[in-house]
């Protein structure tokens, strides 16, 4: 067998189809198209590596799953080093219980990784969002191990760069902007295969944040609320 492949296998950077014993537990993401491609939904625990631009709907894609998780458990949801302040009213609108959300703004990237690991392995967090540009392979492995210990799901959000490599984690996805929602490419999945890019349609969930280009509906006449209400 090829030496390089052996090496990669030892480092657990590649899997063989026969190594994987059954699919991992998943929880619904809230979007049918995504659930179908992931054969069930986002992993119940582990690390998901997302590479995306900011503001194309990445949180809108991922947060509904955590709303569902928060409703079924008493655990915390943690946001570490968000690029911009999170907006409380929006989280409330989505259906989150704000008293079970923790936001950490660490002073440096090292502290961010440390806090992510602590939160993941604590067993009292169900999800950890980590915005981090340069997670290395050994760090990703530690996070994956911590997440499996504590039964949590960690989402690492990274900006797309040229020297982008995928991390040895449960699921790796590439997100891109699409008019009617968001364009998802599953680049790597533990116990599954990669996918061709597909579009998650958000027209129903976020009518104001999608473009319904092709079909021109009959636009109703403007209603004056003060009169009709």
């Amino acid at each position: 067998m090829n030496l390089t492949i052996d090496e990669l296998k030892n480092k657990r950077l590649i899997w063989q189809a026969n190594q994987v014993s059954g699919a991992q537990n998943t929880l619904p993401s809230g979007f049918e198209a995504l659930d179908a491609h992931l054969q069930g939904g986002l992993p119940e625990r582990g690390v998901v590596d997302i590479s995306t631009a900011i503001g194309i709907g990445e949180l809108r894609l991922l947060l509904p799953s955590f709303v569902l998780r928060q409703q079924s458990s008493e655990k915390l949801l943690v946001f570490i080093a968000p690029p911009v302040r999170l907006n409380g009213p929006m989280l409330l609108q989505l259906g989150f219980d704000l008293t079970r959300i923790l936001i950490i703004e660490p002073k440096n990237a090292k502290d961010a990784l440390w806090s992510a690991e602590q939160c993941l392995k604590s067993g009292c967090c169900e999800g950890v969002f980590l915005w981090h540009q340069s997670v290395e392979i050994h760090q990703a492995k530690r996070l994956q191990f911590a997440a499996e210990t504590g039964g949590a799901l960690s989402i690492i959000i990274r900006q797309k760069t040229h020297e982008h490599f995928s991390l040895p984690v449960s699921l790796t996805m590439d997100l891109a902007a699409a008019p009617e929602g968001i364009d998802v490419t599953i680049t790597k999945r533990k116990g599954g295969s990669h996918s061709e890019p597909f579009v998650v349609n958000m027209v129903k969930a976020w009518p104001a944040l999608t473009r319904r280009l092709p079909i021109r509906k009959n636009i109703p006449l403007a209603t004056i609320h003060s009169l009709t209400d």
């Binding site: 907006n87 704000l98 959300i101 936001i103 950490i104 703004e105 660490p106």
Partner: peptide
Amino acid sequence: LGENVLFSP
């Protein structure tokens, strides 16, 4: 991490 690092929305 020190003070003023942890918040809730």
